[in-house]
């Protein structure tokens, strides 16, 4: 900072001090007012959050009550199966529809009697 800067700074500071002086309110009073304001804000915020929560709970409870009032509707199982049954398009190509392979296998040996330790 040059000498001319210092001069300018001192002159400005004097001018500013004249403007500032006599206006400054005591810190204690401003702080006390701010504390009250902050407390009020906090209370108001809590009240808003509380009312919002209460409103949400009321809406939820109302929703439950309304749901209870609705008559239950049963579904007919046969109707449901009828709408959901499915057959492969290739089923028509089978020689016999619903061919059961286990029923058609011939029984070759059916004995539980043994001879000399071996199954007959």
């Amino acid at each position: 900072m040059t000498d001319s800067d210092t001069e300018l700074r001192d002159a400005l500071r004097n001018a500013q001090d004249k403007v500032d002086s006599g206006h400054v309110p005591p810190f204690g009073s401003v702080w006390a007012a701010a504390t009250v304001r902050a407390r009020t804000m906090r209370r108001r915020r809590r009240a808003i959050v509380g009312s919002a929560a209460a409103a949400a709970a009321a809406v939820f409870a109302f929703g439950l009550l309304v749901q209870r009032g609705v008559e239950l509707q049963f579904i007919d199982a046969e109707e449901l199966l009828g709408t959901t049954s499915w057959s492969a398009p290739s089923d028509g190509l089978l020689p016999e529809h619903r061919f059961d392979i286990y029923e058609e296998i011939p029984v070759l040996i059916e004995s539980t009697e043994t001879y000399g330790g071996a199954l007959l």
């Binding site: 309110p25 401003v30 702080w31 007012a33 701010a34 804000m41």
Partner: peptide, 13 residues
């Protein structure tokens, strides 16, 4: 003064 008070409120909260 109101502005300074608001600044203190912002710091307090």
């Amino acid at each position: 003064e109101d502005l300074v008070q608001q600044v203190y409120v912002e710091l307090l909260t």
